[in-house]
Amino acid sequence: MKVIQISVFMENKNGRLAEITRLLASKNVSLRAVTIADTADFGILRLIVKDPDYARDVLLEAGFTAKETDVLAVAMDDEPGALAEVMELFEKNQVNIEYLYSILAGKGNKADVVFKVEDLERGQSLLKQNGYDKPLDL
């Protein structure tokens, strides 16, 4: 369900990503999901971690530009058609998806996917009504 995502601004410069991951490693931040949205000139690193406030502070203190955003994390069955089912739900109810990515190694037979939707509240209540409200084990 609702989780906090950390995004970090990254110039397209050699070693910038390595610098961030090294920093987080040194501060014992465990990454649950990591993805990069990139353009020709810059990238945005998106992270899901256990303690987002701590991770954000670590990044800000090191001089990075980072912010928190609410996103929806959905635990679904790890089998064909599971994602399609959620997508259909969103589509039918006109909840627009800005982007999505999956969480590293889901637990048990669950696969976790992170959604950034236009209307967070609507997306969240929709998921709840349809039984996708299992809290995520980060």
Partner: peptide, 18 residues
Amino acid sequence: EVEPKFFSDETKELERIS
């Protein structure tokens, strides 16, 4: 330089600033 408070998690927002 981007003003930190306008930094966004979405590329399209930063591209809009550009």
